[in-house]
Amino acid sequence: MKKRSTKLAVLIAVVALIAAACSSGGDEAASADFRIAIVAPSASNDLAFTQSIVDAANKLKADGIIGEVAVTDGTFVVDDAAVAIRDYASQGYDLVIAHGSQYGGSLQEIAPDFPDTSFAWGTSADTFGLPNVYSYEAASDQGGQVMGIMAAALSKTGKIGIVGPIEVGDAKLYVDGFKQGVLFYKPNADVTINYIDSFSDVALASEAAQSLIGAGADVLSGTAQMVVGAVGVAKSEGVLWFGTQANQTSLAPEIVVASQVYHWEVILEEMINNVKDGKLGGELYSITFANDGLVIEYNDGFDLPADVKELAENAIKSMKANG
């Protein structure tokens, strides 16, 4: 009797192990099968907006959470992006990400034609009431405030300049947050914002930086992919720079103080889990300090005074505590 029960126990254990193995293998298979497509306006390695989402998706792939990442970048022309979005949906990708505020109108037309495909649109806070569209945004004003506080603390002239693209989306949030941060620390500071009305004109961004420096700014920041030219000007003029969207230290290790880096993978993973559970959209996601979607990466090569770093860390801590 004892022998028989031992045999039964062993059998149950083996069956349980096989079942667990099959179950685990099944999850891996599901992850490996999950396919993401990204359509984005600038280059995948722009050290800014597009790179942030591509890096996030590649991280999820490296972690085995998804199986395939397809990217169509450089679609400054919205009609080109619309073709790519529709094409990916037709090919059966599980999640098609339209990474650009300007793609909203196209997505609103395309998503209803593919009710079984999940779409994500950012940066935006609108899902158009569609059950298969997620929207996502970055609370970039949070990082902007932290950067602004540091900028004000480091500025000797009290004049700080910001080069912006077009006054929309996370760019506007960042610029507004940065200004708030500066004025919070130094209410008398002179913050000048120069929106060049282009996401892609590197030469104009460069001249905007020159103009701000000419007006006395000794600390600059800026957002979007065209700022690479502005960083170059800041470097040649010896003016400090604060980056956002991706780590911009490599552009000018001498003058980049810190960068606010977007970690979209935090919310992408949630979206993917929802899609796997059959929920294809209808929710808004945001990356913040609290969910670790926003991270301040300091330039190790820049000698940032300890008290200034402490100011930044305290601000981050406070924002994390407040959600």
Partner: peptide
């Protein structure tokens, strides 16, 4: 001249120039 003056290259650097 454009690329070397800016000290950088990026996709569609000319922006329609």
């Amino acid at each position: 001249v454009l690329a070397i003056s800016l000290g950088i290259f990026q996709q569609n650097l000319t922006n329609g120039a």
